[in-house]
Amino acid sequence: MSSSTEISPAEQPHMNPYWAGFGLGLVLLASFVIMGRGLGASGAFTTAVATTVHAIAPAHAEGNAFYAEYLGDGATSPLKDWLVFEVLGVFLGGFLSGALANRLKFTIEKGPRITNPRRLLLAAIGGALMGIGAKLALGCTSGQALTGGALLNLGSWAFMMCVFGGAYGLAWFLRRAWL
């Protein structure tokens, strides 16, 4: 990695993808060895949603099999959950890395041919689809593709192929957002 020596701290270039992947793989392996489970992301948000709904409408949450699964036995707070703490770490780790590379910036990432409101609308729609897809597939890119991929999990590999398929299939229609 080359470092910049300008007066105002400039953004550092990103890490070589192979080394970043190697680092990520070692983190995943550590999770297997220490915990006997892989990484995740969407599950933590599901727990947060279930807990919030439970706090507002307890009867409604308990009557729904989906929420109930994330609420646990009621003996401990559902937020005292492995994935919730892991995702809190993800926020901190991302922030630390961004800070070290001078990449902390309030901005919107987008292609030059799309307006900010449109980009944000697409981000919200994409996020919503992601939430639905992740729950249907029992995991997202972290919990299914990365973790299940490394464990040669049948469903994870089918899932991973479909993620790439779905994204490549729609890429042409969204070229104005990114290129």
Binding site: L129, M130, G131, I132, G133, L138, A158, V163, F164
Partner: peptide, 12 residues
């Protein structure tokens, strides 16, 4: 789920 997630990936 994978197809929906892939769509969400390229849209969002």
């Amino acid at each position: 789920g994978g197809l929906i997630l892939g769509a969400g990936f390229i849209i969002g």
